[in-house]
Design a protein around this nucleic acid. Sequence first.
DNA 1: CCGCTGGCTTAGTAAAGGCATAGTCAGGAC
DNA 2: GTCCTGACTATGCCTTTACTAAGCCAGCGG
Lengths: 177, 177
Amino acid sequence: MESAIVRLAGPLQSRENWDNARCPIAGAIDVVGARSAFLLLREAFYGTSRFDDFAERVGISQPVAAARLRELVEDGLLAREPYREPGQRTRLEYRLTEKGREFFPVLAALMQWGNRWVRPAPLEFRHRGCGEPVHTELRCAQGHHVAAGDLDLVVTESQGAASTDSQQAGETGKAIS
Amino acid sequence: MESAIVRLAGPLQSRENWDNARCPIAGAIDVVGARSAFLLLREAFYGTSRFDDFAERVGISQPVAAARLRELVEDGLLAREPYREPGQRTRLEYRLTEKGREFFPVLAALMQWGNRWVRPAPLEFRHRGCGEPVHTELRCAQGHHVAAGDLDLVVTESQGAASTDSQQAGETGKAIS
DNA sequence: CCGCTGGCTTAGTAAAGGCATAGTCAGGAC
DNA sequence: GTCCTGACTATGCCTTTACTAAGCCAGCGG
């Protein structure tokens, strides 16, 4: 089944209403689309919190690190917080917010894919405690494991005139198989 | 527990050997890092297969579509195949390869995050048949559901001189908690 | 108050990625 | 043979992202 990837539940037209301006994937990329943003988030998950460490470990220049970190703070993925080690002056550190932390599955999926298809590396995530390797997977709300070809993309709420489109009707024949 | 994200199992030093040149996340981004590459893959999963449709639905110019599609074919995520509809001349279509199809969890995770944090949209994936919404999640090999804070990053095989670093020793105190 | 360190900013430049417009080419339809 | 359509390619330009090299500022130790 080389061809079966995602079957659209609705007709293609409903997707044409659906320009990038409303696509959550496009929205996500607009926020974290830069290469350096991904790598900075990776570092944040690794535990890096200080400016110089970010720049050095990601391998980007300081101006870029400053610009990108500022954007990530503005977009709410990181927060800048003062901290003070005993006997030291106050410093700033970057910490992941909840919004930033919830980005982790994206990085995990990217790492899994990169590890298999681009650049295998002796590096993996393990479940703390049980020690088993961790992977991302697709599950439905009933707990079934879902294969990539076993999906329908559905528009859960048709906006405006789109409600005149066939909803569950026969037009689903336009779905890609 | 604002701070508990990923605890490194090894000392930070072992990560400094670990530049981006070997990181699978950086590798993945080098392949699909451009905004248009993500969006083209999204379209491919939606079922788009023809050049003009890609350019129009993604909202990019034809030169960019041509360049990006060529790269994705070179990198093995898409394959260009001739096809012929009855009574029509032979045309070309772009289809996802296995490498491309396995990229789907990344897009699903990105969509899930974007939907929650950036641009909520009445759009979701459902498990075909059972009809339940689909989401990405982290699981370990024993099937446990894994929270983002419940991970260790481990270097499964130390290469070269890295084996002289403290491995399981007390240095793990450097892990971020 | 001098210097060191962390945390940046400024300046100048190069490379990548994007756009719009226009042109090319192949293969049926007529 | 002429036209149309799908699938691109060519050209020229702008914007974003990145680089290096250098400078600035705030505190604390001395």
